[in-house]
Simulated assay, not measured.
Amino acid sequence: MSGAIEVAEQAVNNIESLLTDMFNGDYANNEVALGVLINGKEEIQVQLKITRAPEEFIDTEYNDWEDSIKQL
């Protein structure tokens, strides 16, 4: 497994606590660093950010739009 996948898998262990903290603190968003990837001499930090501020939503095309929307 690649280091990128290993770091990204940390999102699963963090998403619910980020949501809980965001709702309990009434924050617009919450984020956590999942890890650092090394590419030669360059460091890349992988982050998980959740936001309920529509102006911060990222424009994207989901492969399956209907499957991308879930209830909490």
Rank of each mutant, 00 (worst) to 15 (best):
E66A: 06
D26R: 10
N39D: 15
E9T: 09
I5L: 15
N29R: 00
L37C: 01
I69M: 11
N30T: 02
T51L: 02
D59T: 01
N14W: 13
L34N: 02
N24C: 10
Y62I: 10
N14T: 09
E6S: 13
N14E: 10
T20A: 12
D21E: 13
G40H: 02
V7T: 08
A11V: 01
E6F: 03
L34V: 00
N63H: 13
I58G: 10
V32Y: 05
S17P: 00
T51P: 00
V36Q: 09
E6K: 06
I50N: 04
V12C: 07
S68R: 05
L19Q: 08
E42M: 05
A33Q: 10
A33I: 08
L72R: 15
N39S: 07
W65Y: 11
V36E: 14
N39Q: 13
M1C: 07
K70G: 01
R52H: 11
E61W: 07
A11G: 07
E56S: 05
N63D: 10
N30P: 04
Q10W: 10
T20R: 05
N13W: 02
A11R: 03
I38A: 06
D26W: 08
V46S: 03
M1Y: 13
T60F: 11
S17T: 14
L72Y: 06
N24D: 15
A53Q: 04
N63Y: 12
N29G: 02
V7P: 05
L72I: 15
N13H: 05
L34F: 03
E56D: 11
Y27C: 06
Q45V: 00
L37K: 04
E6R: 06
Q10I: 09
I15D: 05
M22D: 01
V12K: 13
G25N: 09
Q47Y: 12
I15A: 05
S2C: 11
M22C: 05
N24P: 05
E6A: 08
I5F: 14
D64T: 15
L37G: 00
V12H: 10
Q47A: 15
G40K: 04
L18Y: 04
Q45E: 13
D26K: 14
K41H: 09
S2Y: 13
F23Q: 10
A8H: 03
G40L: 06
N24R: 07
V32N: 08
E42V: 06
V12Q: 11
I38S: 06
L19A: 01
N30K: 07
N24K: 09
T60N: 04
D26H: 11
D21P: 01
R52N: 04
S2T: 15
S68E: 12
D59P: 15
M22P: 02
A53P: 00
I69N: 12
I15V: 02
